[in-house]
Design a protein around this nucleic acid. Sequence first.
DNA 1: CTTATTGATACTATATTAGTATCATTTAGA
DNA 2: TCTAAATGATACTAATATAGTATCAATAAG
Lengths: 136, 136
Amino acid sequence: MRFITRDTDYALRAMVLMARALRQEGRKVFTVEEIVLEEKLPKVFLRRILQKLAEKNMLLSYKGKSGGFSFLVKPARISIANVIRVFQGEIELTNCLLKGKICPNRPECKIRKKIKALNSRVVKDLENINIEELSE
Amino acid sequence: MRFITRDTDYALRAMVLMARALRQEGRKVFTVEEIVLEEKLPKVFLRRILQKLAEKNMLLSYKGKSGGFSFLVKPARISIANVIRVFQGEIELTNCLLKGKICPNRPECKIRKKIKALNSRVVKDLENINIEELSE
DNA sequence: CTTATTGATACTATATTAGTATCATTTAGA
DNA sequence: TCTAAATGATACTAATATAGTATCAATAAG
Ligand code: FES
Ligand code: FES
């Protein structure tokens, strides 16, 4: 069962790397090249991933020579849930097991409620792990 | 994010249908054809799904004319987790976010522990919803 | 025997995920 | 001003997983 896709995964790794270097050496800006060399990730793919994180205002990008990416939001405030949402959309294990005629899709459906409760616990847990923590 | 695949989904629907007819009319054996007619599912695909459930000893199959499928295990004892496992393998949201050098894959890793705890809660919840309940 | 069923397996189609190629744009600095 | 090193954008390709079809064999009721 694939819950975390490769782009989410790579995004986490890249940011964890950045967070650690920031904390330990005060390094702020990283080029895709630097991250790729350390982590052995596919370069253009990672670039697109970082671009997306910048687009979503987690990272800040600097174009041109001596450009790169830095955090726009503190690593401690970027949760796994945030990152998953960027690449995989809303976290919904499933909001309804039996659509259609078997289980009329009514708000009062018990099963639905159970699943939703389960889902919000999962989301909450994923909100509670952040990049800073991952980098420690 | 796809958590439940179509085979799991169809398996649930088929069994819910069977469970309801069992409870309400005492019907025990169902052919693929009958289920397909009621639920509008792809026939050969569903057949393979039911075969698999039989193989895994949830259903019992009867070959030959007037054959079909019945429950081998009571619907109340078949959980969603059971069904997911049949078609999608072990339920593991992810047991490790950062394999490789960033986060050495050690048993004492905190993140890993957190994720595992989260995972077992999810599994536990999915163990607690069963076909009988779904059919009510 | 015939026919309605499941068993098994190979095949095809579709969708998603993963990754590459390429060119445009920006900017620091020689 | 020019060059080189970076990101921005986008189209393409490859690999994989999911969904579904086609077919024939085996079984058993009547
Ligand atoms: S499970 Fe979807 S409405 Fe009940
Ligand atoms: S997250 Fe995998 S060992 Fe820490």
